[in-house]
Design a protein around this nucleic acid. Structure first.
Lengths: 239, 239
DNA sequence: CGGGTAATTGACCTAAGTCAACCAATGTGG
DNA sequence: CCACATTGGTTGACTTAGGTCAATTACCCG
C-alpha cells in the first residue's frame, strides 16, 4: 500500500453513495471527507484484506473495484462478491477480528479508514443500511448461482452492478464503466470465460446488451429485470 | 402458529449451542431457559418469516429445521440457507425492519423469542459469533454453487450440517438425523432431485456416505473435507 | 517491434437436466 | 382392515447447457 497525499479532490462518489443511503448532516459529511485525508492507493491485483488475517481497520472504498475472493487448493476461483465505490470493507457492526475472505483490488483502488460514526447517528444509519445491502447482495449471488442459467446470471449481475453504481452516481443512463474482464465475470458467475464470451456475444446480437471494452450499457433494464425475475432491491430505512 | 405450554423440557439443544459459542454465565443460561416459556410450535411447510413482511420479534430456533427460501415467479426455488436448532432468525444486530427472505419450517419446529442479551455480555458475544457464522455459511453456499460439482456440493453441505449440528450436540459420531428430502437437498444445491439421487447412490456405493431414511453418516469426514477442499470453520472469539 | 493480456472461435465432450415410468412407505377415510 | 391417494425414492433413455482444448486475433504498452 502506498500512502498518498490526496489534497482537495473532486466530490467523491463514495460520499455521494453514503448520502444516498440516508441524508447526512453537514457534520457527518465533513467526517467522511476528513477520513479521506488518510487515503491509500492499492494497485490492481493487490490484496486489501487477507482471509484469516486480522483486520487492521475497517475501510471505505473510495475509488476502483475490489472483489471478495476464495481460491481452492486446486486453483478454482470464486468471487463471492464485489466491493464498489462507497461500499465498506471489514465492517461488521460486531466483533470480527479476522477477515473471513480475501479481498483483492480488481483495478487501482483508493481506500481510507472507515469514518467513525461516533456522534453521527445518521452516518451509523447509513452503515446499517449498507450492511443490510451487503447481505442482500450475497443472497442475490446465491440465487444467481443456484437457479439462473448463464445468460440470466450475466444480465442479473450487470443489473445489480448498475443499481449499486447508481447510488454513487457512477451509472449514467448511457451505461457504466466496468473494470471486469470476461474472465472475472466468469469467476463471479460460476462459469468459464469461454462461455461468458459466447453469451455476451449473443446478448449483444439481440441488442439487450452493449459492451465496448470497459463500457457497458443495458438499453432496457426494466424489460431485463422482468425477464430475469429480478425484483428491484428495496432499501427500507430502519430503526 | 400454535402457542404451547411447554413446561419443564429436556436440556434444550439450542441452549447447548449457545453455550458452545462462548461459555454463558448461569444468569445468561437462565435467561435463555426463561425465554423458552413462550415457545411456539410451527408445523412443517408453514412460514416463520415472510419476505418483505415486518419481523415481529427475532427468534431462537429450539427444535426442528427451517430454510431461507426464495421462489422465482416461474416456480424455480432456491434455498439460500438452513436454520438449525440453536440458530437465530431475524436477528441482525442492526436495523432491519422487514425480512429479506422467507423462512419456512422444513419439519415441525419449535421457536421462542430471542432471549434478550441486555445485561448479559456473554450472551451478546454468543450472538455476535452466531451472526459471523451465518455469514460464513452464506459464503460457503456461494462457493458450493459456484465452483463445486454435484458430488462435492452434496458432501460439502452434509459436512457443514454435521459441524453445525455438533455445536448443539445433535450429531453423534454415528451421524445425524436430517429431515431433508432429496428434493430439498436439490433446492439447496442448485441441482435436480433426480441428479441428487444418482449422486447419493454413487456415494453410498463407494461407502463415503451412509444414508438411511433420515439418518446420515459420513464415515470419514476428515478425508471428505480434504477432498472437497473444505477448510474447517474456525470461530475466533471476538471483541 | 516484442511480449503479455484479453477476446474470439471452432470442434468436441460431459455433467447435469428432462421426461416418464415404477416402486415403497405411509396415511386416510370408509 | 382394505382400497386408494400421496409423497419420496429409484431407474432408464435421451437431450442440452456449459465445459475443455486449442488455435487465432485484437490490443496495449514500454
Amino acid at each position: 500500500m502506498i500512502p498518498v497525499r490526496q489534497a482537495g479532490a473532486s466530490p467523491p462518489p463514495a460520499l455521494r453513495r453514503l448520502q444516498a443511503l440516508g441524508p447526512l448532516t453537514a457534520g457527518a459529511s465533513a467526517a467522511v471527507v476528513a477520513a479521506t485525508a488518510e487515503t491509500r492507493v492499492v494497485r490492481a491485483r493487490r490484496e486489501l484484506l487477507v482471509e484469516g488475517r486480522p483486520i487492521a481497520t475497517p475501510l471505505l472504498l473510495l475509488d476502483g473495484w475490489a472483489a471478495r475472493v476464495r481460491i481452492m487448493s486446486d486453483g478454482r476461483r470464486q468471487f463471492v462478491g464485489f466491493v464498489l465505490p462507497g461500499e465498506t470493507l471489514g465492517h461488521y457492526g460486531f466483533a470480527q477480528p479476522v477477515a473471513s475472505v480475501t479481498v483483492t483490488a480488481l483495478n487501482e483502488v483508493r481506500v481510507c479508514p472507515l469514518p467513525d460514526s461516533e456522534g453521527h447517528p445518521d452516518l451509523e444509519r447509513a452503515y446499517a443500511i449498507s450492511r443490510a445491502l451487503d447481505e442482500a447482495h450475497l443472497m442475490a449471488q446465491v440465487i444467481r448461482l443456484g437457479r439462473l442459467d448463464a445468460r440470466e446470471r450475466i444480465l442479473d449481475l450487470l443489473l445489480e452492478l448498475e443499481e449499486r453504481l447508481a447510488l454513487a452516481e457512477l451509472a449514467e443512463d448511457g451505461g457504466f464503466t466496468m473494470p471486469l474482464t470476461q474472465e472475472m465475470l466468469a469467476d463471479a458467475l460460476g462459469l468459464t470465460s469461454v462461455h461468458v464470451n459466447r453469451m455476451l456475444q449473443q446478448s449483444r446480437r439481440t441488442g439487450e446488451l452493449r459492451w465496448n471494452g470497459r463500457q457497458v450499457a443495458l438499453p432496457d433494464p426494466a424489460a431485463l429485470r422482468a425477464q430475469v425475475g429480478r425484483a428491484a432491491t428495496v432499501v427500507t430505512a430502519g430503526d
